Amino acid sequence: MSIDVRDAARLAHQRYAAPPPVGLRTSPVVEQQLAHRSVRRYLPDDVDDATIATLVAAAQSAATSSNLQLWSVVAVRDACTRARLAELAGGQGHVTQAPVLLVWLVDLARAHAVAARHEAPTAGAEYLETAVVGFVDAALAAQNAALAAESLGLGTVYIGALRNYPTEVSSLLRLPAHAFPAFGLVVGHPDPAEATRVKPRLPQSAVLHHEVYDESAHDAVEDYERRIGAFYADEGLAHSWVERLLARLSGPHALNGRDRLREHLHDRGFPLR
């Protein structure tokens, strides 16, 4: 497949809202990644079983720690269930617009079941490290699925707000003990009426360190605040990246219930020793 270097350069420029790093290499996959955007308006068109199976195959092709595969995913199509999940996630309408919501789980239930069949101990599953592995595995799998979906012309958006009420989500999806809903991924056909642009990210000078961490990289935030501010202004929004960051860190009230995450995990069978 021939690659249009000019198109790749345009996508990279959009990603940074500034000239991108010199010499970026390109490929169809890199172009797809540079073009990523969250989609929040969908057509009602179905996403069929073959497509879901394809996304899960892509997800299962992601790296997984020690091949333990400590994740699962629930494909939710039922309109009433999605409506309730949308409500629990703060009323996000795109959860109900799109035909499917993939709920990604940290799944130690399967591992506990295997251990029970072999009458083997599971004390290691009680430690924070094992839960972290499950969250990382689920995130890697979901991102593979998201990239696959976008390569097929579909749109996606993550729903982290499912963690606002994990007990209710778990009950709704009939999750067993030792399974925890990490986040959702909306999948559907983007509504062409939504002209969402690629959102600029921090410059590489803010995130890329060589050999050791360089705290002077924090200075790059000031320029980014100007560029993302201009982007938001073009979108008719009065947002500030710095203000949003500071608001999220300001206190437990800003976490919308996720300040009780340790408690919720404990209740789901994750002691986090």
Rank of each mutant, 00 (worst) to 15 (best):
A120G: 05
L140C: 12
S151L: 02
Y127Q: 13
L154T: 00
E129N: 07
L175C: 11
Y165L: 07
Y158F: 15
G124Q: 12
A131S: 14
N144I: 00
A141N: 11
G153T: 09
V136E: 07
A182F: 08
A116K: 14
A145V: 08
A131I: 03
T196D: 12
A123C: 00
F180A: 01
F183T: 07
P181Q: 02
G155H: 04
R174M: 09
A116Q: 15
L162R: 04
A142T: 11
A113V: 02
V198M: 07
K199V: 08
A193N: 12
P190C: 06
G124I: 05
V136N: 05
A193D: 14
A149W: 04
H118P: 00
R197Y: 03
E126K: 06
G134L: 01
G153N: 09
L162F: 09
V198H: 06
P200M: 01
L173R: 08
F135C: 06
R174F: 01
G188C: 05
P166H: 03
A145I: 06
R117Y: 00
S151K: 04
E126P: 01
A116Y: 07
T196R: 14
A142E: 11
V157I: 15
L152P: 03
G134M: 04
Q143V: 00
A145M: 06
P190N: 09
A195L: 14
A195G: 13
E168G: 04
G155R: 03
L172M: 07
R117D: 13
T122V: 15
A139Q: 08
L172C: 06
